[in-house]
Amino acid sequence: MNPIKGLLKKDYRISRFLFLTWIGAMLVMLSFGIGMSAYTNQPAGTLTVIVLLGLSLAVFAPVMMLSMLVTEGKNQLWLYSPRSSYSLLLSKFAIILIYQLITQVLLTIYTAFSMYWFGKAVYEQLSIGLFLELAIFVNIGLVLLGIFLTCWITFYWTIYHALKRYPKIRNFRWLVIIFIFFGYNLLETLVLRIDAISTFIFKYNLDLLPLTSLNYEDESWNVLIDIVEIPIIPFFYFVILSLFLFYIASKLLAKKVEV
């Protein structure tokens, strides 16, 4: 077994139970949604489940990463490896990404089932092409959001463990994390208040895909379609910020986090 495969297998094994629990909970919720909709003859059941699970997917990846890092933090065995810290972290990202994709595919199939078969009597139908376009757009968005938040979590975790070396702040490590969190968000808000910067940031937009929402009117569910504009500069900023956070986390893991 090559080292990368070994790392991937290990990360799968330490997270498998949590993932299967999550899938189990998700299946219960999906079944509940169908049951509710069948009982009320309205799509409210499945729709609620789709929205709830969709929202939970935004935090699925960072929660999964935190759980894996907490497991590793118990003995730090993973650091006793000649593999680079990038490999150690990327292996976890890869496993989480696979989990996230499985979950998203399940939810997309459920949404399609809900709209085209189960809810055909109540939904004003989207074309298959538009549905697929929308599904791809939302799924890519969720994956990117998951990666972005996971980079933050990994960054915070490595900061927290790296500070263990410094006895004066060891007991106040949580405060440092909170300070970074609020400090960064405050800075971002203040920067966006500057008109020139704000105008520049939102100057270039991409009319990417239709944004849809469901509307209940006259005892019928309608799909409202609108164009969504994606600001290009923030998108690249978040990509660069994610890479930066991952880089710092990897460096801290290699040089400052001790067993």
């Binding site: 080292p3 070994g6 094994r13």
Partner: peptide, 26 residues
Amino acid sequence: AYLTELDMFYETFTVQETIDYVASQF
């Protein structure tokens, strides 16, 4: 090769999985 005083194992692994993991890394 380092044998630690502490238990540096993944509790949910079997003995074989533990061996396979170490073998994959070194």
